[in-house]
């Protein structure tokens, strides 16, 4: 089969953390995107073993639904992409097994996709960003990057916790279940009283561990919960936006792309909008439906990778729990 055929249809499997997703794409659009999310008990985070059990139980149903919704038959598929990492080992392995099985059975090339690159690529595709500074904010990542010489280069990142972890670990302290961002946002809307939290920007990097400790202490010292949520968002996001602004000023790029679960937060987008306007850059926020983990980010990136000749033999298709964004060659972007 040649890769030059006009329309290429493929499937992508996502399973890095709490989400098991499958999606079918063709050369220009997403045909289906189905997912099922493992729900942690109240006050707890993701238990990797429990999450992987959830994924195992749901896998065949999710894949079947993805095919049905797209009205695509297995034999029409041309590639199978999976999230190779980074993420939780037990969860990643489920997706990898599903993908290897499909690949072997249907005799299709297997495409390894980096989950973080997936977030950026799907965001770029859906918002029309071509050469952006990308801000990836989720439970796993807090990274500001831009494309340069064949890779997404990390301009700045968190030195410790991700913004998602900050929100989740804070939320769990009062008994919320992860992910906690949406509930914290709701509470924050009821306040405008800024409490003083540590503001830690180091050059292009941020650090959230001090802020988490301070915010947790506030819960137990009797501060109004709404005020703490508000202050956590205002201070935590201000740090991010400041670093994003540095990246735009430094790279002089004209697009700012925001992807990842925390991109769903309205206050964050609002702050980023002001910064992008100030630097005459356009703001591209990934649509809510695709901000969290999903199969589409893997399928779409898998398609770009497949067209650029990226493949992996099944026997080498291990998962990589640690696989940094800046270690991934991106041959499909050429500028």
């Amino acid at each position: 089969m040649s890769t030059n055929d006009s329309n290429i249809i493929g499937i992508g499997i996502e399973s890095t953390a709490h989400t098991l997703g499958a999606s079918i794409v063709d050369s220009t659009k997403i045909l289906s995107d189905v997912k099922d999310v493992y729900k942690a008990p109240e006050g707890a985070g993701i238990h990797p073993r429990e999450a992987s059990r959830h994924h195992t139980e749901k896998a065949s149903e999710i894949v079947k639904q993805a095919l049905n919704k797209a009205r695509v038959k297995p034999k029409e598929l041309r590639f199978v992409a999976y999230s190779m990492g980074p993420g939780l080992g037990p969860c990643l392995r489920v997706g990898a097994v599903v993908a290897r099985t499909l690949s072997s059975y249907l005799k299709l090339p297997l495409i390894p996709v980096n989950h973080a690159v997936g977030h950026i690529e799907i965001g770029a595709m859906l918002t029309g960003a071509t050469d952006p500074v990308a801000l990836l904010v989720s439970g796993g990542h807090t990274v500001i990057c831009a494309f340069e010489s064949g890779r997404w280069r990390i301009f700045g990142e968190t030195l410790d916790l991700s913004i998602g972890q900050l929100l989740d670990q804070f939320g769990r302290e009062v008994g919320f279940a992860s992910p906690c961002g949406a509930r914290i946002e709701q509470h924050a809307l009821k306040s405008s009283n800024l409490l003083s939290l540590p503001y830690s920007v180091k050059g292009q990097d941020v650090s959230y561990s001090g802020m988490l400790t301070a915010a947790k202490k506030m819960i137990h010292s009797g501060q109004r919960f709404e005020d703490i949520c508000y202050s956590l968002q205002e201070t935590g996001f201000a740090m991010l936006v400041e670093v994003a602004e540095r990246a735009i000023a430094f790279t002089e790029k004209k697009q700012l792309l925001v992807v990842g679960g925390v991109a769903a937060n309205k206050r964050l987008s609002e702050m980023l909008k002001e910064v992008s306007t100030r630097h005459s850059a356009s703001l591209h926020v990934v649509p809510l439906l695709y901000s969290g983990d999903c199969g589409a980010q893997i399928a779409w990136t898998g398609l770009q990778a497949y067209k650029a000749g990226v493949q992996i033999p099944v026997e080498k298709s291990i998962v990589r729990q640690s696989w940094r964004l800046d270690q991934v060659d991106v041959p499909w972007r050429n500028f």
């Binding site: 340069e148 010489s149 890779r151 280069r153 301009f155 180091k202 050059g203 990097d205 430094f250 790279t251």
Partner: peptide, 17 residues
């Protein structure tokens, strides 16, 4: 060291070659 790490990071990201 963080100071030097910052230089390294910016060199990597903006002057990759």
């Amino acid at each position: 060291s963080v100071d030097l790490h910052l230089v390294k990071q910016i060199l990597k990201s903006a002057h990759g070659k």
